[in-house]
């Protein structure tokens, strides 16, 4: 066996439903074929790793709290096109289940089970006023560019 483990690192910037499906499909699939997988969540991508999955006033300061409320969480991530005020992601989830394709929450669960590593961007957290306690416990570390480069070195990198 090849003892140099293959590696995939994804910068999850977009918090759109469809793009998060892409992130977690790649993450779980790659982890299942023995890749080391690193997910770096930044800005809108925080939608996927907030502990509170519904709209909630989290963060430090009034502006941050309002912004986080509007931004929402995993339960109300929008479709990048044809969102129709949030109806489309629900329809899409219904279709995925009906056609036996794993829905977003399942893909995230599988990614966690397969040991995909979650990291959060420090700068975004400062802007959004989010603390580590506001994120799901699977987030291993809060980091910046230097650490990201170190962890992703020698593997493939995607920006979604």
């Amino acid at each position: 066996m090849n003892n140099q483990k293959k590696k995939l690192s994804i910068i999850a910037f977009s918090g759109d439903f469809d793009k998060l499906v892409a992130v977690f499909t790649l993450a779980s699939g790659a982890a299942a074929v023995n890749y080391e997988v690193n997910l770096f969540f930044t800005f809108w991508g925080f939608n996927a790793i907030k502990l509170k999955q519904n709209r909630s006033f989290i963060g430090k300061g009034i502006l941050a709290r309002v912004f986080n409320f509007l931004m929402g969480g995993l339960k109300n991530v929008p479709l990048s096109r044809l969102n129709f005020f949030g109806i489309s992601p629900k329809l899409m989830t219904y279709l995925m289940k009906k056609r036996n394709v794993a829905p977003l929450d399942k893909l995230i669960e599988y990614s966690i089970d397969l040991g995909v590593k979650f990291y959060a961007c420090e700068m975004s957290m400062v802007i959004l006023g989010i603390r580590k306690e506001d994120l799901i416990p699977e987030v291993k570390e809060v980091l910046g560019v230097a650490k990201f480069l170190e962890y992703s070195e020698g593997g493939q990198v995607l920006f979604i």
Partner: peptide
């Protein structure tokens, strides 16, 4: 379907 076929196998 992909990727759950090999995700389930691996788990």
């Amino acid at each position: 379907h992909c990727p759950i076929t090999f995700v389930k196998t691996k788990l």
